[in-house]
Amino acid sequence: MKLGLQLGYWQAQMPTHHGDLVQAADESGFDAIFTAEAWGSDAFTPLAWWGRETSNVRLGTSIVQMSGRTPTSIAMHALTLDHLSGGRLVLGMGVSGPQVVEGWYGQPFKKPLARTREVVDIIRQVLRREGPVTNDGPHYPLPYTGEGAMGLGKPLKPITHPLRADVPIWLGAEGPKNVAQTAEIADGWIPIFYTPKSAGMYQDWLDEGFARPGARRTRETFEIAATCHLQVVEDGAEKRAAVDAMKPFAALYMGGMGAQEMNFHNQVFVRMGYEQLAEEVQRLFLAGEKERATALIPDELVEDMHIIGTEGEVKEKVAEWESTGVTTLMVSLHTPDEVRRVAELLA
């Protein structure tokens, strides 16, 4: 199992320590660094910035929101960054949710699976550069001939020859249909809140996708890149503090990262067996009672979602995650010393 450093997306201010983290990861044997985006910083620009300072790690987006750019625009970003990094890009994408897609990007959220399939197909056409890029689908027609079209659109192929036609495409997916489609059309899967206890829930969904005619990968060649916070602690008090520090993030995703009528993250917790908890946390969070919502998050949930413990406990838990099929463990770390310590511990 490989290690990835999850840098995430920026909060209110630009992080000042990411350069040191990236350098430590590049020098200590990490396989990749990953960036994310929500409705602030974007995922591609930091990779372009830090990629110049690295030579070993792969550069991954976890994840790019598909509605924020047209498929050909995403492909242009991927083509460019893959060239600049010497073929180190991993393109992770996802549909996000209706709050962000319709509220931030001003795009319709309907038919997320069909849209995903079209996006992936168009990007692969661009990267193969076998001919002009076209798409007959209803979501991203190329050339565009709909309302307002001048009728002058021309199918094009990229001016720049891509460095790789097979840039890995990983998809963020949560529900059964989306996970199955990911196993069918993608090179890898970026689950959210994947845990050893919940891993069994996904196996049938993945197998359904692998069994479809024309599936791109098999289970043996498919990547599963799971994210968690990893922290080595020395004693019970330090572990207590680390577990408590993770609870607000669980409450945020369970209660606040989506509309009450449609919160995909909340539904993941429901499938994990926390239906009543997820309902109450969402109710409190949306009512502005975030501290009360956070107080409801049980220790056992945090310890299942993350890897927090002594060196021996961490090694045991990492082995448990790997045994469920995880091929890359994306971990959030705070200091270069933590990066180096984890790399040495898990080498």
Rank of each mutant, 00 (worst) to 15 (best):
V126Y: 11
I297Y: 15
K2Q: 12
D207E: 14
G258Q: 04
D304I: 01
R52K: 07
E174A: 10
D121F: 13
E313Q: 14
G188T: 11
E279R: 15
E223T: 02
L5C: 06
A215E: 12
L91C: 04
A259F: 13
I308W: 01
P176A: 02
A180N: 11
L286F: 06
H161T: 09
H306R: 01
A245Q: 11
A251M: 01
L21E: 07
L296S: 01
E303K: 13
L252Q: 04
H161M: 07
D166G: 06
T327Y: 05
P15G: 06
E223W: 08
K111V: 10
R217K: 14
A215R: 06
V167D: 12
V101L: 08
D42Q: 09
G4F: 09
A242L: 02
F210P: 04
M150Y: 14
E234N: 13
H229V: 01
R164P: 02
T182E: 03
A114T: 02
E208S: 05
P248S: 01
G209L: 03
E320K: 07
A251D: 01
A211C: 11
D235W: 13
P162T: 00
A186T: 06
T45A: 15
P15F: 04
P15K: 13
R124D: 09
W205Q: 08
I297F: 15
A165D: 09
T35N: 14
V326C: 08
Q276E: 13
G94K: 08
K110L: 05
R292H: 12
E27V: 01
G8L: 09
L5D: 00
D187Y: 11
I308E: 05
G92P: 07
N135W: 09
G51E: 03
A241E: 12
F109I: 05
F30G: 00
A32F: 08
G60I: 06
L47T: 00
M93L: 14
D121I: 00
I192C: 08
Y105M: 09
G92W: 10
S28F: 07
E344K: 15
G258Y: 07
L252V: 01
P155E: 07
G146V: 00
A242D: 03
G131H: 03
P191M: 02
V268L: 10
P191F: 05
L84H: 08
F44K: 10
L333W: 12
V22R: 04
A259Y: 15
G137I: 03
D235N: 14
A186V: 02
A319T: 01
Q276M: 06
D166Q: 08
A149C: 08
